[in-house]
Amino acid sequence: MRGFLLLLVALLAQPVAAQDSLPPAPYAYKQLDDPAKEKSAQDLMMTLRCLTCQSQSIADSDAAMAGDMRHQVRSRIEAGEDPEAIRSWLIERYGDWVSYQPQVTAMTWPLFAAPVILLLFAAFIVRKRFGRAKPTGEKS
């Protein structure tokens, strides 16, 4: 079933979109024979964003284009391509948007600085709370 596409259609109250009658691409719903390769394809697909859905990975979508993208990913991995090379191939075409794994760029570094800043903030609070001034509480 085209569950996800239809979910979107339903939630956004749009008319049911016309759909192609072609069967899905060979690797859209077929796994690779080598379990190790299938695993790395699956791991990559979980982190690629479906182009025609609102907010889903291509691994979780029944949209035709997500199926075609899975076909690309599986056949490229079958051909021995590195998953990260496939990711860069897609980023080159669609921008960082297509990957759920943000790359460190001039635009995204604050995302990666955030945990550090939050840890510093934690250290600040903790230092205030546990400072050496009166370590035994208010017994004094």
Binding site: A25, M65, D68, R93
Partner: peptide, 14 residues
């Protein structure tokens, strides 16, 4: 194109 390959080549999403 049965597998939308040209779209991935072009960066087209629909």
């Amino acid at each position: 194109d049965d597998v939308s390959k040209i779209q991935f080549d072009l960066g087209s999403s629909g």
